[in-house]
């Protein structure tokens, strides 16, 4: 099941997604969280943030909206109070970083670069903050700009987390690659809204929020496929993964690894369950390297290309 992501060894390609797993402590009371390939922690900002007012969650058909708004203790408190415990778990820690200005991103990433985190996940896709967040991710120029800036601040592997709230995901992924990103991860949540007919008020105090869960899986899968075709750096896929079969689909579409988010919220034992099932799937298929799945999608187009290739080979022979 072992795999490598930007040079970082993962015991399996399944990663806990940012914002749904805290800093790991709560789930570690339910099971040993070192079963994960890696953990992406709650989005960190340079200074502590209290986030948006409640209500912050609304249930939707096969999904949920959240408007947490990056509540977090800040990078320094994370490094001091959370990271030593989490790093001792022996699995790579991915620091998900957000900011409201370029300087904030840069300084937060600098401080993390001297810490035992394995990788930076640049969150330019949070839809729930008034300043910064998703606005850094909505045009290829801005994706390029912020990635380039942060790239210069860290020697750690840099993964850029893309927002689905764009018209062309391939363009966004290419911009991150061109600016020096080592990987891209996608998708973050899709901006949505819910209304309580009784009160005629939005269910979320923030009015809009980010949609996640199985409801977004087909969109996520499509975007991962498009991004993977556009770039040559690794793509980490997520969005509604609830079963090992979902995870396999993302890998077939081109993801080198996958992240699991909302499934942790609805079923706290999702991690160990999906990891076990994934292992069983690989065994059943006789695959030892999960990399064999990556981008193995069979389309007529891919089949035709393979045929041309095979014919050429036989011509040569």
């Amino acid at each position: 099941m072992r795999t490598k992501l930007c040079g970082v060894e993962l015991k399996n390609p399944l990663i806990a997604a940012s914002g749904t797993f805290g800093f790991g402590r709560e789930y570690d009371e339910l099971y040993d969280i070192s079963c994960w390939g890696a953990i992406s922690v709650k989005g960190l900002t340079l200074r502590p943030r209290r986030g948006n007012p409640p209500g912050r969650i609304a249930e939707t058909a096969s999904g949920m909206l959240n408007s947490v708004g990056l509540q977090n203790p800040g990078v320094d408190a994370f490094i001091r109070d959370e990271l030593p415990w989490l790093a001792a778990k022996g699995i790579p820690v991915i620091a998900n970083v957000a900011g409201s200005s370029e300087e904030e991103y840069a300084e937060a990433v600098r401080r993390l670069s001297d810490s035992p985190v394995a990788m930076i996940e640049l969150n330019i896709s949070c839809p729930n903050v008034r300043q910064g967040g998703v606005s850094f991710g909505t045009s290829p120029e801005r994706v390029y700009g912020i990635t380039r800036l942060v790239r210069a601040c860290t020697g750690l592997p840099l993964m850029v987390k893309l927002t689905p709230n764009v018209s062309d995901i391939a363009e966004a992924a290419t911009a991150a690659e061109d600016a020096g990103a080592d990987a891209v991860s996608l998708i973050n949540t899709i901006i949505g809204m819910a209304i309580d007919t009784g009160t005629r008020r939005p269910v979320l105090a923030n009015v809009t929020g980010g949609l996640s869960g199985p409801a977004i899986k087909p969109v996520a899968l499509r975007m991962v496929w498009q991004a993977a075709r556009a770039v040559s750096i690794p793509v980490v896929g997520m969005g509604g993964i609830t079963t090992a079969d979902d995870a396999v689909q993302f890998m077939i579409a081109g993801a080198c690894a996958v992240m699991i988010g909302t499934a942790n919220i609805t079923d706290p034992m999702s991690g160990p369950r999906i990891i076990d099932d994934f292992r069983r799937y690989l065994e059943g298929e006789g695959i030892s390297d999960p990399g064999a799945l990556v981008g193995s999608l069979r389309t007529d187009e891919a089949d035709a290309r393979r045929e041309v290739f095979e014919n050429r080979k036989s011509d040569v022979l």
Binding site: T20, G22, K42, P54, Q71, N264, I265, P268
Partner: peptide
Amino acid sequence: EERMGCGVGACLVCVCRTGTGDGWEH
């Protein structure tokens, strides 16, 4: 009471406001 997601403390959707003055917290 507040609407909840995970129920275990990881997702931060269920917060209430505590404390007063500048020291208030979610």
